[in-house]
């Protein structure tokens, strides 16, 4: 159980990348990487959930958001993994699969570390007294920045794999499409992350078990046909 103490060092190694040739230090285990996602996800989730304040009942929104954020990332990962495993096997890349999982988990861990580092900005913006819509946009920007930055890690981790077999490049694209597709729906049903101050605190939003894509399709259709339903 040295991992807890080593977490900051591990996060540092994730960001800097582990030099391939150095075998002196054992490589981070997959469980340690998942723990990294969990801890940093908790941190940013909690920061995110403080929008409505953290007094009285509002503290629960902080707790819910803290739990939900890492859950969203890890559950999306777990749901998308089986098909990716079979695809990798089918395309003859099975022997690399442990390295593939590591590359993906390092990216996830990096994403949450970056996100957690942006947490103070989010809190700073909250303190300015921005509105709910602005807070949504601000968090969207934070996610966009960390997702984009995590691509650096992904490219670095995948580079040796792609060099060994260019087919990894195609499969990585497949992974990203599937992961984003599942992740969007996962984020959608796990709302609210911020907690609208006008609404009571709840773990799931009333009627949130809908489909994100259907909502988008309906919106687009209404815009195209000029109908303004509700």
């Amino acid at each position: 159980m040295t991992t807890l103490v080593d977490l900051p060092r591990l996060a540092d190694r994730v960001l800097r990348g582990e030099p391939a040739g150095r075998a002196s230090r054992p490589r981070a285990t997959l469980a340690a990487l998942a723990l990294l996602v969990l801890i940093h996800g908790l941190c940013y989730g909690a920061a995110m959930g403080t929008f409505g304040g953290f007094t009285g009942e509002r503290i629960w929104q902080v707790v819910y958001s803290a739990v939900k954020l890492p859950f969203m990332l890890l559950a999306t990962f777990a749901i998308s993994l089986p098909s990716f495993f079979v695809l990798n096997t089918l395309f003859g890349l099975r022997d690399d699969f442990t390295r593939v999982i590591r590359a993906l988990l390092v990216t996830q861990a990096g994403l949450t570390v970056i996100l957690a580092s942006l947490g103070p900005f989010t809190l700073f913006l909250y303190v300015q007294g921005i509105g709910y819509q602005q807070a949504l946009v601000a968090n969207g920007v934070m996610f966009a920045v960390s997702s984009a930055s995590a691509q650096i890690l992904l490219a670095r981790e995948y580079e040796p794999l792609i060099r060994a077999n260019p087919r990894h490049r195609t499969l990585l694209k497949v992974w990203l499409v599937v992961y984003v597709f599942v992740g969007i729906q996962m984020g959608w049903i796990l709302r609210p992350f911020l907690g609208d101050p006008q609404q009571p605190v709840q773990f799931f939003r009333e009627g949130s078990f809908t489909n994100a894509y259907m909502v988008v399709i309906e919106l687009a259709w209404n815009v195209l046909t000029g109908q303004a339903r509700r």
């Binding site: 777990a78 089986p82 079979v86 695809l87 089918l90 729906q185 996962m186 078990f209 489909n211």
Partner: peptide, 21 residues
């Protein structure tokens, strides 16, 4: 391949109310 995509289907089945989707 079908079974490996099962978790994704199950997730959408549980979280979706739209039958056509």
């Amino acid at each position: 391949v079908l079974a490996s995509l099962g978790p994704i289907t199950a997730f959408f089945s549980v979280s979706t109310t739209s039958y056509p989707f």
